[in-house]
Deep mutational scan, measured.
Amino acid sequence: IDVRFTVNGLDVTVRVRTEEIAERVKELAKNGVDWREIQRIAEELNK
């Protein structure tokens, strides 16, 4: 599942395995978490 969001004007796409992880990623993006941090968290959750 590809999750797309915009952080500080940057369009970011993170690929995740499940809808649940996708929701977590969207939540982080909404809360203004840095995209590199979101990427790292997504990689952890995908394991």
Rank of each mutant, 00 (worst) to 15 (best):
I1K: 04
I1Q: 06
I1Y: 13
D2K: 10
V3H: 02
V3R: 01
V3M: 07
V3F: 05
V3Q: 01
R4N: 13
R4H: 15
R4K: 15
R4A: 10
R4L: 11
F5N: 01
F5P: 00
T6A: 07
T6L: 08
T6K: 11
T6V: 12
V7E: 05
V7D: 05
V7R: 04
N8I: 03
N8M: 09
G9T: 04
G9P: 00
G9H: 05
G9Y: 03
G9I: 02
G9R: 03
D11M: 15
D11H: 13
V12I: 13
V12Q: 05
T13L: 12
T13G: 05
T13Y: 12
V14E: 00
V14T: 03
V14P: 00
R15V: 12
R15A: 07
R15C: 13
V16W: 01
V16L: 03
R17I: 13
R17L: 15
T18D: 09
T18R: 02
T18S: 11
E19H: 13
E20Y: 12
E20R: 08
E20V: 09
E20Q: 13
A22T: 01
A22G: 09
E23L: 12
E23I: 12
R24S: 06
R24W: 07
R24Q: 12
R24T: 14
R24I: 15
V25L: 15
V25H: 00
V25R: 00
V25S: 00
K26I: 14
K26M: 14
E27F: 09
E27C: 03
L28G: 01
L28K: 01
L28Y: 05
A29D: 03
A29S: 06
K30G: 09
K30T: 11
K30F: 10
N31D: 12
N31P: 02
V33Y: 10
V33T: 11
D34R: 05
D34N: 10
W35N: 03
W35T: 06
W35Q: 04
W35H: 08
R36H: 13
R36E: 14
R36Y: 12
E37A: 07
E37M: 07
E37L: 07
I38Y: 01
I38A: 01
I38S: 00
Q39W: 08
Q39R: 10
Q39H: 08
Q39N: 07
R40T: 08
R40D: 07
I41A: 05
I41F: 07
I41L: 08
A42E: 01
A42M: 07
A42T: 07
A42H: 01
A42P: 00
E43S: 08
E43I: 10
E44A: 07
E44H: 07
E44N: 06
L45K: 02
L45S: 03
L45Q: 03
L45E: 04
N46M: 03
K47P: 03
K47Q: 14
K47L: 14
